[in-house]
Nucleic acid binder design. Structure first.
Lengths: 210, 210
DNA sequence: TGTTAAGGTGAATATGGATTCCGCTTTGGA
DNA sequence: TCCAAAGCGGAATCCATATTCACCTTAACA
C-alpha cells in the first residue's frame, strides 16, 4: 500500500517547526506550461490524421509517433483512447454545427439546406475511414449536440415553409439522409465524390416531390 | 527447429523391414464423420447468432461456447476468425441473391424491385451489429457476387423499361440505395423498422420522378 | 467387435495493443 | 539563476484475444 504523501509532509513540518507557506486555498497554483497547451492540439490533430488514414483501430503508438510525442504524453491529457475519440467526436460535432449555423444565414432556405448537406457529404468523405466509430460518442443531450439538432430542425422548417421541401418532411428525414450519405460515402472508392452527390440529388428530389 | 515426422517413420520402417500398407493413391480414404458434417453448420449458425448479438468483435471463445463445441473444433474447419466471417459473408450474399432471383420472377417489375429492396432493408436490420464488417469480404468477381450484380442490373433495367423508374436510373443507383439503407438501419434504434421504410419510400419517389 | 484415422478438446502459448510508471527534462516564478 | 512542480518519454506491464497442439473420443470400415 502507498503512503499518503501529505500526512508525511505535515509530520515533517511539525518536527522542524518550519513555517509552511500555505498556498491560498482556491488560488490557481501555477500557469500551465506552454508546451503542454501546445501538445493538447498537436495530439488531437495527429489523432485525426492517423484515424483518417488507418481507421479507428490505429494504435496509440502510431498516433504518438505522428505527433512526435511519447505515448505517455497522450495519456497525461486523455484518460485513454476512448476519451480521445470522444474529444474528436465533440470537435467534429462543433464543425457540423458551424455549417448548420452558416446555412441558416442563407436568405434562400432551399439553397442553405443544400449547402449544408453538401458540406456533410464532403465532411464524411474526408472521414470515411472512421466516421462510423464516432456515432454515439456525443450524447444527444450534450450542449453542442442539442444546439445542432435545433439548428437542423429550424433549417428543415424554413425549407418546408419556403416550399422547397414537401409539407410533412421532418428534421428526422434530414438526419436519416445524413447517415445514409455516410453509408454511400463509405461504400464508394476513396476520393470519388460523384456517387454521394448523385445520391443526394436523387433523394432531395424525393423530398421535394408531392 | 522441428523434425519432420515423416522421415522418422520412414526410418523406422526400413529398420524393421515391415511391409507398409500403401493406401491406393487416389482412393477416397474414408467417408467424413457425421458429427463433423453437422458441426460445420453448427459453427456457422452459432457465429451468425453471436455476431448479430455482440458484433464482429465477439470472441472465438464465445462462439465456441454458443456452439457447444471447443475452440479447437472451429479452427479445424476454418483457418481463423477472418475465414469464418468470409464464409458468413458468402452465405449472406447467397441469400441476397435468392431474393434478387425471386424479385425477377415478379411479373410487375416495379413490385419486384420494391419487394427486393424491402428484403434488403429487413436483412440489414437483422444484421445491424455486424453488417458493416461484411463489406469487401466477397470479391466482386466472385461467382455469387457477380451473379447477384447481374440480377440487380436486370431488375433495374426491367423497372426502367416498365416505366417504374425514371429513364437514366442505373444499377449503381440501386446499389447506392442499398448501402444507404444500411446506414439508416445502423443509426436507428434496434427493432424499429419505420425509419428505413420511410427513407426507402422517399428515395424511391426520387428515383421515379422525372 | 477391433482397429484406426478423422475429429474434438481446451489448456498453453503467441500476439498485439492499451495503459502504467518512474526517472529525466523543461518551464514558471521568486 | 535556482527550485520545485508540471510535463515528457518510452520501456515494462498487463490484458484480452486469437491460434496452436498434444492427447483423448468417436465413428467408419473390415
Amino acid at each position: 500500500m502507498k503512503v499518503n504523501p501529505y500526512s508525511a509532509l505535515r509530520t515533517l513540518a511539525t518536527v522542524t517547526s518550519q513555517p509552511i507557506r500555505q498556498p491560498k486555498p482556491q488560488t490557481a497554483p501555477r500557469a500551465p506550461r506552454r508546451d503542454a497547451l501546445r501538445n493538447d492540439a498537436i495530439v488531437i490533430n495527429a489523432a485525426r490524421a492517423v484515424f483518417a488514414e488507418l481507421g479507428p483501430q490505429a494504435s496509440m503508438e502510431t498516433i504518438a509517433t505522428r505527433a512526435g510525442l511519447g505515448v505517455g504524453t497522450i495519456y497525461r491529457r486523455f484518460p485513454g483512447k476512448d476519451a480521445l475519440l470522444d474529444a474528436i467526436a465533440r470537435l467534429l460535432t462543433e464543425e457540423i454545427d458551424q455549417a448548420a449555423a452558416a446555412a441558416l444565414e442563407d436568405p434562400d432556405p432551399g439553397a442553405g439546406l443544400e449547402r449544408f448537406l453538401e458540406f456533410v457529404g464532403a465532411f464524411h468523405a474526408e472521414k470515411r475511414r472512421y466516421a462510423a466509430a464516432l456515432t454515439d460518442r456525443v450524447a444527444d443531450d450534450d450542449a453542442v449536440s442539442a444546439r445542432t439538432a435545433d439548428r437542423v430542425l429550424r433549417l428543415t422548417q424554413k425549407a418546408v415553409d419556403a416550399g422547397y421541401l414537401t409539407q410533412g418532411v421532418t428534421a428526422d428525414d434530414i438526419k436519416a439522409l445524413i447517415v445514409a450519405l455516410r453509408g454511400v460515402v463509405a461504400a464508394s472508392p476513396d476520393g470519388d465524390d460523384a456517387p454521394w452527390r448523385r445520391f443526394l440529388r436523387i433523394h432531395l428530389t424525393g423530398l421535394r416531390a408531392d
